[in-house]
């Protein structure tokens, strides 16, 4: 456990020692705050409807976009920078295991993301003070957002093990995530059975129920699988030095 925490702490201190963390924090909060405000304004204008489908749904679909925009920028440096600095070679000779390196990096990005989400939901508390509402549905939506973001982080972490170039790592992450999003965009991509399979795999189709306040086991299991898959991919990618060497 200690090596995991050491890796995570070092990562976060580098992060907050540079402007990147603050810029990303500011972008996330300004965008999510704007979306929250505009969705509430829309809801008020068009009058009394059911909150989960008329307000939370839109707010959390918007938050999804902001998260998709920001998280690949958080994760792209994780291993790419270690490769670029050459520090990865040192890490590989220290008495730590590869999975501890992966989990330490993952934990650092995840902690940062949790801070983003915690700050992004502050406007909800303000709204609650003036107009109390049922807390269950937005709480479910926050859980969904955290799961979605954690899945983004796992994917971005795996991408960052592939290259020493942060931009490449970021672009690969966007590519994979957008593919998992748009894959069910258009029914014309295939037959009906094929669409059903794609729906099963689509990141955003598993997020939608959370946004309207429904927690389903199948959706939670999907995210757990997605996260586990990419963390394992990151681990295997690090171990490819066996045949790839130090590059």
């Amino acid at each position: 456990m200690r090596p995991i925490l050491s890796v995570a702490r070092r990562e976060l201190s580098t992060y907050f020692g540079s402007p990147i963390a603050y810029v990303l924090l500011a972008v996330y909060l300004v965008l999510s705050g704007y979306f929250f405000y505009s969705d509430v304004a829309f809801f008020v204008t068009f009058g009394a409807q059911y909150l989960p489908t008329a307000l939370w749904r839109y707010v959390f679909l918007d938050f999804r976009l902001v998260t998709l925009l920001v998280l690949p920028l958080v994760t792209m440096r994780l291993f790419a920078e270690e490769r670029k600095l050459g520090t990865i070679e040192l890490l590989w000779t220290l008495p730590v295991r590869d999975f501890q390196l992966v989990l330490g990096k993952f934990l650092a990005a995840w902690a940062f993301f949790v801070v983003l989400v915690a700050l992004a939901v502050v406007p909800f508390a303000v709204l609650y003070v003036f107009h109390p509402f049922a807390l269950g549905p937005p709480a479910a939506a926050v859980l969904g957002l955290v799961l979605l973001g954690t899945a983004f982080i796992a994917c971005g972490l795996a991408a960052s093990t592939l290259t020493e170039n942060q931009v490449v790592a970021g672009m690969v992450t966007y590519g994979v995530l957008v593919f998992f999003w748009f894959m069910t965009w258009n029914e014309a991509v295939g037959s009906e059975q094929w669409i059903r399979v794609l729906l099963l795999l689509s990141l955003f189709d598993h997020y939608l129920p959370f946004a309207t306040g429904t927690i389903a086991l199948v959706d939670v299991a999907y995210f757990a699988f997605f996260i586990g898959f990419f963390l394992y991919a990151a681990l295997r990618s690090l171990q490819s030095r066996t045949w790839r060497g130090v590059v």
Binding site: R2, P3, R10, S13, T14, S18, L85, G86, E89, L91
Partner: peptide
Amino acid sequence: PERTALYTDMTVERYLRFVGEMKR
């Protein structure tokens, strides 16, 4: 290592503390 393995943004002391922690 042949290629230096240093976190250029860290101070000397913090870097060494990190490696020391990793060395248990």
